[in-house]
Structure formats: C-alpha cells, structure tokens
Design a binder for these strands. Structure first.
Lengths: 185, 185
DNA sequence: CAATTATATCTCGACGTCAAGATACTTGTG
DNA sequence: CACAAGTATCTTGACGTCGAGATATAATTG
C-alpha cells in the first residue's frame, strides 16, 4: 500500500493474512478509494459491515427456524410474547414497538399466527378499542424450541471471537444503537 | 443483580449510567434471563444488536436517499455500477452477488432504473446470453450525490465512537462477516 | 459434431410489508 | 355532559422480493 505523506489516512495497515480474512466490505471500500479518492469513506467500514452481516444473519436464521417450522417473522412475534412472561400476552401496539413493523403488518401477522393456532386474540377487558394477543401452549413450546436452535447457531457464528472480544463488540454496538432506541428515532 | 455462585456468568456488570445508555437489547436480554434463566442468551448481546441496528440504519438511509429522489435499492444498484469504474457497466449476475438479491429481483430493478433513465441495457458482445447494465451520465451523478449524503449521515451516527473505537468495531465485524463472504455462505 | 450439462437472464405467481385512511372507542376540555 | 382530539386496531391497494421454472446460449464430453 502506498503511503501518502500529510494525508489523513486514519485506518491502519493490517496484515490481513495474519490477523484475519478480507471481507466483501474491504473490497467495497478499496473500490471507492480508487474511484473516489476525494471522499473519506471510512464510515462504510463499520456501517456497511453491520448491514451486510445483518443480511447474512437473516438468511442463516431463516434456515435455523425452518427446522422448527417457523418463519423469522413468526419467531419475532412468538418470542416477544414469550418474553413478556405468563400469561404471555401483549397488545398489538406493544408488539409493534418490539418488532419495528407497522400496524398493518402486525394485524396480518397476528391473523396468520392465530390461524395456525400459535396465538389467540382476546378482547382487552380494560379498553374496548384494544385487543390482547396471547400465546397458546403450542405457541409457547414452538418459541422455546426455536430459541434454543437460534442460540446454538449464533454461538457457532460468534466462535470467531474470544469472550472478551464479544463483550467489546456488544458494548460498541450498544453505543450506536442506544440513540435510536432511546430518542424516538 | 443477583450473583449466582458456580454459574457461568461471563458478562460483566457495567455501570450503565456512567459508561453509556441502556438499549432495547439490554431489556430484551434481561427479559430472557428472567423468563429462561436456564439458557445462556449471551449471543443475543451481539447479534440482536447487529440486526436491530441494521434495521435502524435502513430507515435512516431511506430518509437520506429520499432527499436525492432515490430508493435504497436504487442506490445499491447505481453505486455498484459506479464503483466498477468507467465505463460503469456490469452484468446482472455480477450485480446479484454484490447486492445479495435474487435474479428475478435484479431483472425488475434494472427494468425500473432503465425506465427512469439511470441505467441502460446493452447486449454483451462476448456472450449472447448475457447483458451488460451501464450507468448513464445522470445515473452516475445521482449515485455520487447520494453517496455524499449517505456518508455525511453515517459520520453523524458514528460520532458516538472515537476513532480507535470505530477501528476496533470494524475489525470485530470483519471477523464475523469474513466467513460468510469467503466461504460461499 | 451431437448430446448433455451448465450458465445467464427473464417470466410469473405468491407473499409480506408498508402507508394512508377508516373505524371504534377513550380521554381531555370547557 | 357534549364535543374535539387522541389512541388502538384494522382495512386496503400498491409495491418489491422471492423462488421455481422457462428460454436461450455456451461449454463439455464422448
């Protein structure tokens, strides 16, 4: 790599063959530096990796869940209810905020889960506009099984990192997500 | 927090009020530890944050791009071509692997971009099955503008971290993405 | 060189999501 | 208490994606 005196090149040359492997984002960043040497594309080093990794995780999860006959979106809803604790019920509105989807989507999801017998809709006794969505016993079991499978898969992916690296990574990511999660982003 | 002797509790108590803010995943993990104290949910600390952050980034990007009259998927395709360098052309197949979508989706995307005059389809002179997708001058300009906007936004998000933290984060993420990007995941 | 297999792209129908608006109920105000 | 504003959920239509299969061309093999 060419050294350019006086130019802000804050990233450090890494001997990739020793420390780790090159990834798609390294290639992407190199391409931008070639095509747009006037731009500082350092942000992509972090945020493009986040997006791409998320994409890969989606695919991997889809696979893991299919072994339990669940779609990712089904898992999201069922586990939100499961986490709520007995009696495993939340309003559609509470489910919205947890799953980051719109209300139309959630109505549709609840419909389909109810048809499969994994949740049931109950009238909210304290607000007649409202509804409560409750996990059925089968829904609860399916959620628990799928969670165990997911964790096994995720542990395998994270085996790339040491325990302390995982802690560091979680901490750094928290710093980035906290503004979104706390300020109504 | 309760201390449980003899139990593997590898995460470290952090004084959140001093070091940073709690995020949605902290709440999620706390809920699981309450509902399923038998499970080790540590993997979620990293990978759920990756997924949720990616989701937030999608939304933020959508906003940034809309100022330039582009959708995120349009940006993905246009910038893939832009990065390729002059004459800014790639086959649909090359675009597939860069954007992680299926061939049916890419056909559709190219159709729509061509209708907007941002790309054009040319026959591949060396393979009559093939097609080349080429950026138009306007397509190139739009890609460059949108990229500048995106980088500005991402820099703002990353201002949460110091320079060295950004470097650390990029490195840790690379270790996780490299297996997906190199082994045909 | 014919037959087979592989590759590149496109077509098409099903599906999930979103955004905007509709409906029904509740809360706050005077 | 009446009325306006707010809230919770559902409905609807447009849209983008996927996945399986179709078509056309290339590469391989005997």
């Amino acid at each position: 790599m060419v050294k350019i005196l006086g130019m802000k090149r804050l990233h450090i040359d890494r001997p990739l063959t020793l420390i780790g492997m090159e990834d798609e984002v390294d290639r992407l960043v190199a391409a931008w530096r070639r095509e747009r040497p006037d731009l500082d594309v350092e942000p992509l080093e972090v945020l493009s990796r986040v997006s791409r990794l998320a994409r890969h995780l989606d695919r991997a999860r889809r696979l893991a869940f299919s072994e339990h006959g669940l779609e990712p979106w089904e898992f999201d809803v069922l586990t939100s209810l499961r986490r709520a604790g007995a009696p495993y019920q939340l309003s559609p509105g509470q489910l919205l905020t947890q799953t980051l989807v719109t209300s139309g989507t959630m109505t549709n999801r609840i419909d389909r889960l109810a048809k499969k017998g994994l949740v049931e809709r109950l009238p909210d006794p304290s607000d007649r506009r409202g509804v409560l969505v409750r996990l059925t016993p089968e829904g609860r079991d399916r959620a628990d099984e799928a969670l165990a499978g997911l964790l096994a898969q995720e542990r395998a992916i994270l085996a790339q990192l040491s325990q302390s690296q995982r802690g560091d990574l979680a901490g750094l990511l928290r710093q980035l997500t906290a503004p979104f999660d706390n300020i109504p982003g």
